[in-house]
Amino acid sequence: MFNHILLASDGSEYSIRASEKAVCLAENNPNAKITIAYVVDGAASSSDSHQWNALDLNESRKQKLLITERKLQQAHVSYEVKILHGDPALTLVEFAAENDFEVLVIGSRGLNTLQEMVLGSVSHKVAKLAPCPVLIVK
């Protein structure tokens, strides 16, 4: 059983599937806690800032995590949300290492800065560099 689970989420369909698997890992374990990590890509956030104000950006990010949070709440799993900034793959790997996570759960594909599905370059890089086991969810 895993107690310290890192869930990478960007609001994509694949990250929502990953949240379901993270719940499976945490179910029936009162010591389990999931940390949802949403990484704001520096390039994406600077291009977004020309079109949105800070409040709109924060609300947009919250909306992307709403389904994931709802799934964890319904399963009565303890969780927290962390908003991180930087290159998604490297930031997730660094955060996992600094916080001694036992497993990192990530979708096989995610959203790029244009909110389109992209090949799983982030999940591939995370799997290669992470200091803990990585569960990649299709």
Rank of each mutant, 00 (worst) to 15 (best):
L129P: 02
L84N: 05
A44C: 13
A37Y: 05
P30M: 09
T68N: 08
V118R: 13
N53G: 09
K138E: 12
D41E: 08
D41H: 07
N53V: 08
N31G: 04
S60L: 12
L66S: 12
N31K: 13
K125T: 12
L65S: 07
L119F: 12
H85N: 14
A43S: 11
A75P: 06
H76W: 03
V103S: 00
M117Q: 15
N29C: 00
V134W: 00
L119G: 07
I67L: 12
H50K: 11
A54C: 04
N58F: 10
G110R: 06
K64Q: 13
S46I: 14
K71S: 09
F95Q: 01
A127F: 01
E69Q: 15
H4F: 00
S12K: 04
S15Y: 05
S45H: 09
H124N: 13
R61C: 07
L7I: 05
P131L: 07
A26T: 03
L92P: 02
L111V: 07
V105H: 05
R61P: 02
V126D: 04
R61A: 11
N99Y: 01
F101W: 06
E59G: 05
D87Q: 08
H4V: 00
C132N: 02
Q74C: 10
G120V: 05
S78K: 15
L66Y: 11
W52E: 10
D41T: 04
